[in-house]
Design a protein around this nucleic acid. Sequence first.
DNA 1: TCAAATAGGTTTAGATTCGATACTATTTAA
DNA 2: TTAAATAGTATCGAATCTAAACCTATTTGA
Lengths: 183, 183
Amino acid sequence: MANQINAVSQWLERLSAVHRNLMRRFANEEGLQLVHVEIMQYLSVSNRYSDTTQAISEYLGQTKGSISQSLGLLEDQGFVKRTQDKIDKRIFHLSLTAKGSAVAHRMFASIDLEGAEELEPGLKTLLTSIQKKNGLRGFGTCISCRFNQNPGKNLFVCGLTKEKLTLEDTKKICKEHDEAASG
Amino acid sequence: MANQINAVSQWLERLSAVHRNLMRRFANEEGLQLVHVEIMQYLSVSNRYSDTTQAISEYLGQTKGSISQSLGLLEDQGFVKRTQDKIDKRIFHLSLTAKGSAVAHRMFASIDLEGAEELEPGLKTLLTSIQKKNGLRGFGTCISCRFNQNPGKNLFVCGLTKEKLTLEDTKKICKEHDEAASG
DNA sequence: TCAAATAGGTTTAGATTCGATACTATTTAA
DNA sequence: TTAAATAGTATCGAATCTAAACCTATTTGA
Protein backbone atom coordinates (compact mmCIF):
# COMPACT_ATOMS: atom_id res chain seq x y z
CA MET A 1 0.00 0.00 0.00
CA ALA A 2 2.58 2.50 1.17
CA ASN A 3 4.76 1.61 -1.79
CA GLN A 4 1.88 2.12 -4.14
CA ILE A 5 1.15 5.55 -2.69
CA ASN A 6 4.81 6.48 -2.85
CA ALA A 7 4.84 5.51 -6.51
CA VAL A 8 1.96 7.88 -7.27
CA SER A 9 3.65 10.57 -5.23
CA GLN A 10 6.83 9.97 -7.19
CA TRP A 11 5.19 10.35 -10.60
CA LEU A 12 3.23 13.33 -9.42
CA GLU A 13 6.43 14.87 -8.16
CA ARG A 14 8.12 14.32 -11.50
CA LEU A 15 5.11 15.50 -13.47
CA SER A 16 5.07 18.65 -11.42
CA ALA A 17 8.79 19.21 -12.02
CA VAL A 18 8.43 18.61 -15.77
CA HIS A 19 5.51 20.97 -15.98
CA ARG A 20 7.44 23.68 -14.21
CA ASN A 21 10.46 23.10 -16.46
CA LEU A 22 8.32 23.52 -19.56
CA MET A 23 6.74 26.66 -18.15
CA ARG A 24 10.12 28.06 -17.27
CA ARG A 25 11.48 27.25 -20.72
CA PHE A 26 8.53 29.00 -22.32
CA ALA A 27 8.97 31.99 -20.01
CA ASN A 28 12.62 32.30 -20.98
CA GLU A 29 11.75 32.20 -24.68
CA GLU A 30 9.35 35.06 -24.07
CA GLY A 31 11.91 36.95 -22.01
CA LEU A 32 9.73 36.62 -18.91
CA GLN A 33 10.04 35.12 -15.45
CA LEU A 34 8.24 31.90 -14.57
CA VAL A 35 5.96 33.57 -12.07
CA HIS A 36 4.85 36.12 -14.67
CA VAL A 37 3.70 33.40 -17.04
CA GLU A 38 1.96 31.63 -14.19
CA ILE A 39 0.09 34.77 -13.29
CA MET A 40 -1.01 35.35 -16.87
CA GLN A 41 -2.08 31.75 -17.23
CA TYR A 42 -4.19 32.09 -14.11
CA LEU A 43 -5.76 35.36 -15.20
CA SER A 44 -6.72 33.79 -18.51
CA VAL A 45 -8.97 31.29 -16.72
CA SER A 46 -10.12 32.99 -13.53
CA ASN A 47 -13.59 34.44 -13.09
CA ARG A 48 -14.68 37.84 -11.80
CA TYR A 49 -14.59 36.73 -8.16
CA SER A 50 -11.07 35.44 -8.48
CA ASP A 51 -9.12 37.97 -10.51
CA THR A 52 -7.45 39.79 -7.62
CA THR A 53 -4.00 40.02 -6.09
CA GLN A 54 -5.19 38.05 -3.09
CA ALA A 55 -6.62 35.20 -5.16
CA ILE A 56 -3.47 34.88 -7.27
CA SER A 57 -1.45 34.83 -4.09
CA GLU A 58 -3.47 31.92 -2.72
CA TYR A 59 -3.47 30.08 -6.03
CA LEU A 60 0.29 30.23 -6.47
CA GLY A 61 1.06 29.91 -2.78
CA GLN A 62 3.18 33.04 -2.60
CA THR A 63 2.76 36.10 -0.43
CA LYS A 64 0.55 38.88 -1.72
CA GLY A 65 3.46 41.31 -1.40
CA SER A 66 5.50 39.29 -3.85
CA ILE A 67 2.57 38.90 -6.24
CA SER A 68 1.85 42.61 -5.97
CA GLN A 69 5.38 43.39 -7.10
CA SER A 70 5.14 41.06 -10.07
CA LEU A 71 1.78 42.54 -11.03
CA GLY A 72 3.31 45.99 -10.96
CA LEU A 73 5.91 44.86 -13.47
CA LEU A 74 3.35 43.15 -15.68
CA GLU A 75 1.21 46.27 -15.68
CA ASP A 76 4.16 48.51 -16.57
CA GLN A 77 5.02 46.22 -19.46
CA GLY A 78 1.45 46.22 -20.75
CA PHE A 79 0.51 42.60 -20.11
CA VAL A 80 -2.06 43.25 -17.42
CA LYS A 81 -4.53 46.00 -16.60
CA ARG A 82 -6.30 46.87 -13.36
CA THR A 83 -9.84 48.05 -12.86
CA GLN A 84 -11.14 49.27 -9.55
CA ASP A 85 -14.25 47.56 -8.31
CA LYS A 86 -17.23 49.91 -8.50
CA ILE A 87 -18.72 48.80 -5.21
CA ASP A 88 -15.78 47.85 -3.00
CA LYS A 89 -13.04 50.33 -3.72
CA ARG A 90 -10.34 48.29 -2.01
CA ILE A 91 -10.58 45.68 -4.74
CA PHE A 92 -8.83 45.88 -8.10
CA HIS A 93 -9.87 43.42 -10.80
CA LEU A 94 -7.00 42.24 -12.94
CA SER A 95 -7.28 41.25 -16.56
CA LEU A 96 -5.02 40.47 -19.48
CA THR A 97 -4.48 42.98 -22.25
CA ALA A 98 -4.38 41.70 -25.84
CA LYS A 99 -0.62 41.41 -25.41
CA GLY A 100 -0.98 39.37 -22.21
CA SER A 101 -3.70 37.24 -23.69
CA ALA A 102 -1.45 36.35 -26.62
CA VAL A 103 1.23 35.15 -24.22
CA ALA A 104 -1.26 32.91 -22.41
CA HIS A 105 -2.40 31.45 -25.72
CA ARG A 106 1.13 30.71 -26.83
CA MET A 107 1.78 29.10 -23.47
CA PHE A 108 -1.16 26.72 -23.77
CA ALA A 109 -0.15 25.88 -27.32
CA SER A 110 3.45 25.20 -26.34
CA ILE A 111 2.55 22.51 -23.82
CA ASP A 112 1.61 19.53 -25.90
CA LEU A 113 -0.62 17.11 -24.00
CA GLU A 114 -2.03 15.17 -26.90
CA GLY A 115 -3.45 11.86 -25.77
CA ALA A 116 -3.95 12.96 -22.18
CA GLU A 117 -7.67 13.64 -22.48
CA GLU A 118 -8.73 10.43 -20.77
CA LEU A 119 -6.85 11.47 -17.65
CA GLU A 120 -9.04 14.51 -17.10
CA PRO A 121 -11.68 13.02 -14.80
CA GLY A 122 -9.05 11.30 -12.68
CA LEU A 123 -6.91 14.41 -12.40
CA LYS A 124 -9.88 16.49 -11.40
CA THR A 125 -10.94 14.07 -8.70
CA LEU A 126 -7.40 13.80 -7.37
CA LEU A 127 -7.07 17.56 -7.36
CA THR A 128 -10.31 18.13 -5.48
CA SER A 129 -9.36 15.52 -2.95
CA ILE A 130 -5.88 16.92 -2.35
CA GLN A 131 -7.12 20.48 -2.03
CA LYS A 132 -9.77 19.44 0.46
CA LYS A 133 -7.52 17.23 2.58
CA ASN A 134 -4.91 19.94 2.88
CA GLY A 135 -7.22 22.82 3.63
CA LEU A 136 -6.50 24.65 0.40
CA ARG A 137 -9.05 26.73 -1.43
CA GLY A 138 -11.20 24.93 -3.99
CA PHE A 139 -10.22 26.64 -7.21
CA GLY A 140 -12.57 24.77 -9.50
CA THR A 141 -15.25 25.60 -12.06
CA CYS A 142 -18.95 26.16 -11.46
CA ILE A 143 -19.90 22.84 -13.02
CA SER A 144 -18.89 20.94 -9.91
CA CYS A 145 -19.68 23.68 -7.39
CA ARG A 146 -22.38 23.30 -4.80
CA PHE A 147 -23.31 26.96 -5.10
CA ASN A 148 -24.08 26.66 -8.79
CA GLN A 149 -27.75 26.83 -9.79
CA ASN A 150 -29.14 26.18 -13.23
CA PRO A 151 -32.73 27.39 -13.34
CA GLY A 152 -32.96 27.28 -17.13
CA LYS A 153 -31.11 26.30 -20.28
CA ASN A 154 -27.86 28.32 -20.49
CA LEU A 155 -28.97 30.28 -17.45
CA PHE A 156 -26.86 29.98 -14.30
CA VAL A 157 -26.90 31.68 -10.92
CA CYS A 158 -24.22 31.64 -8.27
CA GLY A 159 -25.93 30.84 -4.95
CA LEU A 160 -23.14 32.56 -3.05
CA THR A 161 -23.18 35.94 -4.78
CA LYS A 162 -26.72 35.65 -6.20
CA GLU A 163 -25.41 36.90 -9.54
CA LYS A 164 -26.39 35.63 -12.98
CA LEU A 165 -23.67 33.82 -14.91
CA THR A 166 -23.39 32.95 -18.57
CA LEU A 167 -22.33 29.52 -19.81
CA GLU A 168 -18.88 30.97 -20.52
CA ASP A 169 -18.68 32.31 -16.97
CA THR A 170 -19.25 28.85 -15.55
CA LYS A 171 -16.19 27.48 -17.34
CA LYS A 172 -13.80 29.75 -15.49
CA ILE A 173 -11.98 29.08 -12.26
CA CYS A 174 -13.40 30.42 -9.01
CA LYS A 175 -11.68 30.76 -5.67
CA GLU A 176 -14.96 30.22 -3.83
CA HIS A 177 -15.47 26.86 -5.48
CA ASP A 178 -16.78 24.21 -3.14
CA GLU A 179 -17.38 20.65 -4.23
CA ALA A 180 -20.98 19.56 -4.66
CA ALA A 181 -22.12 16.85 -2.27
CA SER A 182 -21.38 13.50 -3.87
CA GLY A 183 -24.23 11.47 -5.26
CA MET B 1 -10.54 19.02 -29.06
CA ALA B 2 -8.52 22.10 -28.25
CA ASN B 3 -10.86 22.81 -25.38
CA GLN B 4 -10.41 19.32 -24.06
CA ILE B 5 -6.61 19.62 -24.19
CA ASN B 6 -6.77 23.01 -22.51
CA ALA B 7 -8.86 21.47 -19.75
CA VAL B 8 -6.21 18.84 -19.07
CA SER B 9 -3.54 21.49 -19.19
CA GLN B 10 -5.56 23.53 -16.73
CA TRP B 11 -5.88 20.72 -14.20
CA LEU B 12 -2.28 19.76 -14.64
CA GLU B 13 -1.31 23.35 -14.05
CA ARG B 14 -3.33 23.47 -10.88
CA LEU B 15 -2.12 20.08 -9.68
CA SER B 16 1.42 21.23 -10.21
CA ALA B 17 0.78 24.43 -8.24
CA VAL B 18 -0.92 22.56 -5.41
CA HIS B 19 1.88 20.06 -5.23
CA ARG B 20 4.43 22.82 -5.03
CA ASN B 21 2.40 24.60 -2.34
CA LEU B 22 2.29 21.46 -0.22
CA MET B 23 6.01 20.91 -0.68
CA ARG B 24 6.72 24.50 0.25
CA ARG B 25 4.50 24.25 3.30
CA PHE B 26 6.32 21.11 4.39
CA ALA B 27 9.69 22.77 3.77
CA ASN B 28 8.71 25.72 5.94
CA GLU B 29 7.63 23.42 8.76
CA GLU B 30 11.05 21.79 8.59
CA GLY B 31 12.80 25.14 8.45
CA LEU B 32 14.05 24.41 4.94
CA GLN B 33 13.72 25.93 1.49
CA LEU B 34 11.54 24.31 -1.15
CA VAL B 35 14.48 23.44 -3.37
CA HIS B 36 16.24 21.66 -0.51
CA VAL B 37 13.30 19.34 0.03
CA GLU B 38 13.05 18.73 -3.70
CA ILE B 39 16.70 17.74 -3.83
CA MET B 40 16.35 15.35 -0.91
CA GLN B 41 13.23 13.84 -2.38
CA TYR B 42 15.09 13.22 -5.62
CA LEU B 43 18.13 11.72 -3.90
CA SER B 44 15.88 9.34 -2.02
CA VAL B 45 14.78 7.74 -5.30
CA SER B 46 17.66 8.18 -7.75
CA ASN B 47 20.04 5.38 -8.69
CA ARG B 48 23.84 5.32 -8.82
CA TYR B 49 23.96 6.75 -12.34
CA SER B 50 21.76 9.64 -11.39
CA ASP B 51 22.90 10.87 -8.00
CA THR B 52 25.06 13.78 -9.19
CA THR B 53 24.86 17.56 -9.26
CA GLN B 54 24.35 17.46 -13.01
CA ALA B 55 21.45 15.01 -12.83
CA ILE B 56 19.66 16.97 -10.12
CA SER B 57 20.13 20.08 -12.21
CA GLU B 58 18.44 18.46 -15.19
CA TYR B 59 15.71 16.92 -13.08
CA LEU B 60 14.73 20.16 -11.42
CA GLY B 61 15.43 22.32 -14.47
CA GLN B 62 17.79 24.68 -12.67
CA THR B 63 21.39 25.54 -13.43
CA LYS B 64 24.08 23.33 -11.99
CA GLY B 65 25.63 26.34 -10.29
CA SER B 66 22.45 26.93 -8.35
CA ILE B 67 22.11 23.27 -7.38
CA SER B 68 25.77 23.17 -6.39
CA GLN B 69 25.16 26.01 -3.97
CA SER B 70 22.14 24.32 -2.42
CA LEU B 71 24.06 21.05 -2.10
CA GLY B 72 26.83 22.87 -0.27
CA LEU B 73 24.31 24.07 2.27
CA LEU B 74 22.68 20.66 2.63
CA GLU B 75 26.09 19.07 3.17
CA ASP B 76 27.07 21.65 5.79
CA GLN B 77 23.84 21.00 7.63
CA GLY B 78 24.36 17.26 7.56
CA PHE B 79 21.48 16.23 5.26
CA VAL B 80 23.62 15.05 2.36
CA LYS B 81 27.03 13.49 1.93
CA ARG B 82 29.31 13.29 -1.10
CA THR B 83 31.49 10.39 -2.22
CA GLN B 84 34.00 10.73 -5.01
CA ASP B 85 33.68 8.19 -7.80
CA LYS B 86 36.55 5.69 -7.71
CA ILE B 87 36.97 5.55 -11.46
CA ASP B 88 36.05 9.01 -12.74
CA LYS B 89 37.35 11.46 -10.20
CA ARG B 90 35.34 14.37 -11.61
CA ILE B 91 32.16 12.76 -10.35
CA PHE B 92 30.80 12.99 -6.82
CA HIS B 93 27.95 10.69 -5.83
CA LEU B 94 25.44 12.28 -3.52
CA SER B 95 23.44 10.45 -0.92
CA LEU B 96 21.20 11.22 2.03
CA THR B 97 22.42 10.88 5.57
CA ALA B 98 20.07 9.38 8.16
CA LYS B 99 18.97 12.95 8.91
CA GLY B 100 18.26 13.67 5.24
CA SER B 101 16.51 10.36 4.75
CA ALA B 102 14.20 11.11 7.65
CA VAL B 103 13.19 14.39 6.02
CA ALA B 104 12.39 12.61 2.75
CA HIS B 105 10.26 10.07 4.63
CA ARG B 106 8.33 12.75 6.46
CA MET B 107 7.79 14.52 3.16
CA PHE B 108 6.28 11.46 1.48
CA ALA B 109 4.10 10.85 4.52
CA SER B 110 2.87 14.43 4.62
CA ILE B 111 1.48 14.35 1.10
CA ASP B 112 -1.65 12.33 1.40
CA LEU B 113 -2.67 10.81 -1.91
CA GLU B 114 -5.03 8.17 -0.64
CA GLY B 115 -7.29 6.94 -3.38
CA ALA B 116 -4.98 8.05 -6.18
CA GLU B 117 -3.50 4.62 -6.88
CA GLU B 118 -5.60 3.98 -9.94
CA LEU B 119 -4.12 7.05 -11.60
CA GLU B 120 -0.62 5.62 -11.56
CA PRO B 121 -0.52 3.98 -15.01
CA GLY B 122 -2.08 7.02 -16.65
CA LEU B 123 0.28 9.43 -14.96
CA LYS B 124 3.29 7.37 -15.96
CA THR B 125 2.21 7.22 -19.58
CA LEU B 126 1.48 10.93 -19.66
CA LEU B 127 4.83 11.67 -18.08
CA THR B 128 6.80 9.57 -20.55
CA SER B 129 4.98 11.14 -23.43
CA ILE B 130 5.56 14.71 -22.23
CA GLN B 131 9.22 14.13 -21.51
CA LYS B 132 9.78 12.63 -24.95
CA LYS B 133 7.86 15.25 -26.89
CA ASN B 134 9.73 18.04 -25.21
CA GLY B 135 13.19 16.60 -25.49
CA LEU B 136 13.64 16.16 -21.76
CA ARG B 137 15.59 13.33 -20.20
CA GLY B 138 13.65 10.14 -19.45
CA PHE B 139 13.95 9.91 -15.66
CA GLY B 140 12.12 6.65 -15.23
CA THR B 141 12.74 3.27 -13.62
CA CYS B 142 14.40 0.21 -15.15
CA ILE B 143 11.10 -1.66 -15.43
CA SER B 144 10.10 0.30 -18.51
CA CYS B 145 13.61 0.92 -19.84
CA ARG B 146 14.78 -0.53 -23.13
CA PHE B 147 18.27 -1.07 -21.72
CA ASN B 148 17.02 -3.29 -18.93
CA GLN B 149 17.82 -7.00 -19.24
CA ASN B 150 16.49 -9.73 -17.01
CA PRO B 151 18.50 -12.89 -17.61
CA GLY B 152 17.24 -14.64 -14.47
CA LYS B 153 14.87 -14.34 -11.54
CA ASN B 154 15.79 -11.27 -9.51
CA LEU B 155 18.84 -10.81 -11.71
CA PHE B 156 19.03 -7.66 -13.83
CA VAL B 157 21.67 -6.12 -16.08
CA CYS B 158 21.78 -2.61 -17.49
CA GLY B 159 22.54 -2.91 -21.19
CA LEU B 160 23.98 0.59 -21.22
CA THR B 161 26.55 0.23 -18.43
CA LYS B 162 26.75 -3.59 -18.51
CA GLU B 163 26.47 -3.61 -14.73
CA LYS B 164 24.48 -6.02 -12.60
CA LEU B 165 21.52 -4.56 -10.75
CA THR B 166 19.48 -5.88 -7.88
CA LEU B 167 15.69 -5.83 -7.80
CA GLU B 168 15.87 -2.82 -5.46
CA ASP B 169 18.17 -1.05 -7.92
CA THR B 170 15.63 -1.39 -10.68
CA LYS B 171 13.02 0.50 -8.67
CA LYS B 172 15.04 3.68 -8.56
CA ILE B 173 15.01 6.54 -11.00
CA CYS B 174 17.62 6.74 -13.72
CA LYS B 175 18.54 9.70 -15.87
CA GLU B 176 19.48 7.42 -18.76
CA HIS B 177 16.02 5.90 -18.84
CA ASP B 178 14.71 5.33 -22.33
CA GLU B 179 11.26 3.92 -23.00
CA ALA B 180 11.07 0.37 -24.25
CA ALA B 181 9.61 -0.03 -27.74
CA SER B 182 5.86 -0.40 -27.42
CA GLY B 183 4.25 -3.77 -28.01
C1' DT C 1 52.72 11.80 -26.69
C1' DC C 2 50.71 16.04 -26.13
C1' DA C 3 47.57 19.71 -27.13
C1' DA C 4 42.77 20.65 -27.60
C1' DA C 5 38.19 19.67 -26.55
C1' DT C 6 34.85 18.04 -23.46
C1' DA C 7 32.66 17.17 -19.08
C1' DG C 8 31.60 17.47 -13.98
C1' DG C 9 31.59 20.86 -10.53
C1' DT C 10 32.44 25.25 -8.10
C1' DT C 11 32.64 30.16 -7.61
C1' DT C 12 31.36 34.83 -8.40
C1' DA C 13 28.49 38.86 -9.48
C1' DG C 14 24.27 40.93 -10.51
C1' DA C 15 19.35 40.60 -10.83
C1' DT C 16 15.13 38.87 -8.95
C1' DT C 17 12.25 36.90 -5.88
C1' DC C 18 10.56 35.87 -1.42
C1' DG C 19 8.76 36.67 3.18
C1' DA C 20 8.00 39.78 6.93
C1' DT C 21 6.64 44.04 8.51
C1' DA C 22 4.62 48.30 8.29
C1' DC C 23 1.43 51.29 6.12
C1' DT C 24 -2.86 53.35 3.56
C1' DA C 25 -7.54 53.05 2.36
C1' DT C 26 -11.95 51.02 2.67
C1' DT C 27 -15.49 48.28 4.65
C1' DT C 28 -17.83 45.91 8.33
C1' DA C 29 -19.25 45.28 13.10
C1' DA C 30 -20.07 46.72 17.54
C1' DT D 1 -18.19 56.69 16.39
C1' DT D 2 -14.73 53.37 17.00
C1' DA D 3 -12.46 49.09 16.51
C1' DA D 4 -11.45 45.29 13.78
C1' DA D 5 -10.97 43.15 9.43
C1' DT D 6 -9.87 43.20 4.49
C1' DA D 7 -7.41 44.47 -0.04
C1' DG D 8 -3.54 46.05 -1.55
C1' DT D 9 1.18 48.53 -1.72
C1' DA D 10 5.97 49.79 -0.14
C1' DT D 11 10.26 48.65 1.79
C1' DC D 12 14.11 45.90 3.48
C1' DG D 13 17.06 42.05 4.20
C1' DA D 14 17.92 37.33 3.10
C1' DA D 15 18.00 33.79 -0.08
C1' DT D 16 17.77 32.04 -4.63
C1' DC D 17 18.55 32.02 -9.57
C1' DT D 18 21.10 32.67 -13.94
C1' DA D 19 25.00 33.32 -16.64
C1' DA D 20 29.59 33.32 -17.13
C1' DA D 21 34.15 32.46 -15.82
C1' DC D 22 36.94 29.19 -13.77
C1' DC D 23 39.14 24.79 -12.11
C1' DT D 24 40.19 20.05 -12.62
C1' DA D 25 39.86 15.47 -14.66
C1' DT D 26 39.07 12.84 -18.64
C1' DT D 27 38.71 11.95 -23.44
C1' DT D 28 39.74 12.81 -28.21
C1' DG D 29 42.61 13.25 -32.09
C1' DA D 30 46.49 14.29 -34.68
